[in-house]
Simulated scan of single mutants.
Amino acid sequence: MKPNMKPNASELANQLRTQSAQPTACQSCASVLSTSDSHTSASSACASNQGIKQGVFISFEGCDKAGKSTHIKHISAALEQHGYKVVYVQEPGSTQLGAHIREIVKTCSEPLSAKAELMLFLAARAQLVDTVIRPALTQGCVVLADRFMDSSVAYQGYGRGLDPAFIERCNAFVCDECVPDKTILLIPEGNPHEKFANELVNNEHDRMEREGVEFQQATLAGYHHIAQQYPQRIAIVHTASSKECTFKRVCEALSGLFPCLHHEELC
């Protein structure tokens, strides 16, 4: 099943607050969810110490046109086939506030300062964590995020020239220890900047995408630096021309958390 790209977050949050049934997963993956202590981020911090169910939080990162949405759909479908309840979120978005902010940052005709842009993303993230991600994780769901905190460091930090260390402190406040268990950083094989430049020709693009190749180069360099800082959390996946090949690489990167994905094939 493909995740809803425009979820009704209010209904989702209410549903998650009242759910009590543990999602059924394949035996091998269920053991990882219940016993693994190798990752102490979302699955432990967000669940606190109240004996509540713990989910798994996966974020997908990368520059524009990297294929995040496509491969989130494939991984979501694969996990649902193995019995997991999957919740898809998008940044900014997936809440009413986030949807409004998304419209602003994508289409605003007035020039946004780098600081204003950062604060908008942080506000959307705070609302998303508190009203959707945390409730989903406490109910044992798998949360798949199309962008999360690393995007602000890469785009507003390395891309816009703001202090990455300051942005990380802002993220720590906004996310309140709700950190992805694993981050898939998608980078196209070959020359990703050439691929992006080719897609700019004769296509409609939002405000961020119109920033051009130099901005994307700085952002990608930022992503590489972040990956070096957090090698245990961030897995770099080079996307191939074949979706099947890329899907296998993503599954391999996630197989430590979900052994059922080890031999998964793209349908």
Rank of each mutant, 00 (worst) to 15 (best):
H225D: 13
R147S: 13
P23S: 02
E214Q: 15
H224A: 11
E265R: 14
Y230H: 05
I184A: 00
P111E: 03
T131S: 09
Q216W: 09
S241A: 15
F60I: 00
A77W: 02
T183A: 00
N203Q: 15
A253Y: 11
E189W: 13
N49S: 13
Q229I: 03
I72N: 01
K115L: 11
Q216R: 09
Q232A: 07
D150K: 07
K195D: 11
Q217I: 07
L162S: 04
H193C: 05
M208C: 10
Q229F: 02
L144D: 07
E117D: 13
E117Q: 11
C245N: 11
E168N: 02
N4A: 04
I52T: 14
K65Q: 09
D163T: 00
V174M: 00
A154H: 01
G93V: 02
I236A: 01
I104D: 06
L97D: 00
G190W: 03
H225R: 14
A253F: 07
D150Y: 12
A235W: 00
C260P: 06
G159H: 12
H74A: 11
A253N: 10
G222P: 10
V250L: 12
Q229K: 09
V153K: 05
V132C: 12
S59G: 00
N191L: 08
R147E: 14
E168K: 06
H100T: 03
C46P: 01
N14C: 10
R125W: 05
T183M: 00
C260N: 12
K68S: 04
A25N: 08
A25D: 09
S151L: 03
M119S: 07
R125D: 01
D146P: 09
P192C: 09
A126F: 04
V201H: 06
V105A: 02
M1S: 13
L162P: 04
S38D: 10
L120Y: 05
V153P: 03
E244D: 10
L33Q: 15
V250T: 10
T239H: 11
A99S: 05
I236T: 04
V142N: 11
I236K: 09
C267L: 15
A66R: 12
M119K: 04
